[in-house]
């Protein structure tokens, strides 16, 4: 196994040279944003374009959109959202959810997304990762992983298993092996979501995040469980994550991006400062 080379550095000079990223995540259903608690009881929050602009102005480093529209026919609603977001914010953002083919990838990238994230489609057809990386570049392809702790067992040596369908279906894939395979296939980044921690606001799944981060060389975005700024500080330091995904803690106004960033700066974490001016004051 490629083991823990990363550890050698993540406390050293190189990785600290880049700022840690704070990434609000917006779930979008039929063109409107929601936030799911354990993937159930989604509550409508609002317009994804407005929210994107709000977080952009507040100093988010990147945004993630997940299309949770159930019907495939309504997928083009999302493409329109992506296009409008791209006209409104000028930081990288990724789009995931329902991406099954190279054509799906092309559509969101052409609409203006910087990256595209594949999750269950990659479990069913891992080639989609290498195809996407070849066609659009590694930096465009994010491997999204939904993970549950199941304990060490046959076929799951790490004790963490990949799940799909919002956590309902176990696929018999070991999370660590899948992460490494994803990297090999050409994923440029991993978005690691703990289903156990998701929606709890009790903090990220630290063991899982560290396990994956230490054993791949591509950046890892920690996801699931963020409830307060301390959680982000933990996962970005001892969790060895390169970026932290946040949702309800900012969606419901409990914290602002500014609150989180200033806390992280106090903790000595390298963070990109929020903008202090606008290039187009007429906005």
């Amino acid at each position: 196994m490629e083991t823990v080379i990363r550890k050698f550095f993540s406390d050293g000079d190189i990785l600290e040279m880049l700022s840690k990223r704070i990434i609000p995540c917006l779930d979008v259903r039929e063109g409107r944003t929601t936030k799911g608690i354990k993937f159930e009881n989604n509550v409508d929050i609002g317009d994804p374009v407005e929210m994107a602009r709000f977080y952009y102005e507040a100093g988010a480093d990147e945004l993630v959109f997940y299309d949770i529209t159930a019907s495939h026919e309504k997928r083009n609603i999302m493409i329109d959202v992506v296009r409008r977001v791209a006209e409104t914010i000028f930081i990288p953002f990724s789009v995931g959810g329902g991406i099954r083919t190279l054509e799906d990838m092309r559509a969101v990238l052409l609409a203006g997304a910087e990256k595209v994230s594949v999750n269950s489609a990659a479990v069913k057809n891992p080639e989609i990762i290498s195809q996407g990386a070849r066609a659009f570049g590694n930096q465009c392809v994010v491997l999204g992983m939904d993970v549950k702790h199941v304990g060490e067992k046959k076929g799951i040596p790490s004790g963490y298993e990949i799940v799909i369908n919002g956590g309902r279906t176990y696929v018999g894939l070991d999370a660590l092996e899948w992460a490494q395979k994803g990297q090999l296939l050409g994923a440029g980044e991993i978005c690691l979501n703990s289903i156990d921690a998701d929606g709890t606001k009790d903090g990220y799944e630290m063991d899982l995040t560290r396990l994956i981060s230490d054993n791949v060389t591509i950046p890892v975005i920690a996801s699931g469980g963020a409830g307060k700024p301390e959680h982000l500080a933990q996962v970005l330091t001892t969790g060895h994550a390169d970026a932290a995904l946040i949702a309800s803690m900012v969606h419901y106004g409990t914290y602002t991006i500014e609150d989180i960033k200033s806390y992280l700066v106090q903790q000595g974490i390298k963070i990109r400062p929020a903008h202090t001016y606008q290039a187009n004051p007429s906005r």
Partner: peptide, 15 residues
């Protein structure tokens, strides 16, 4: 690795 990527941004052997 080849690929339509930014400024030679694509790479498999990152470390």
């Amino acid at each position: 690795s080849a690929g339509a990527c930014s400024c030679g941004a694509s790479s498999n052997d990152k470390f």
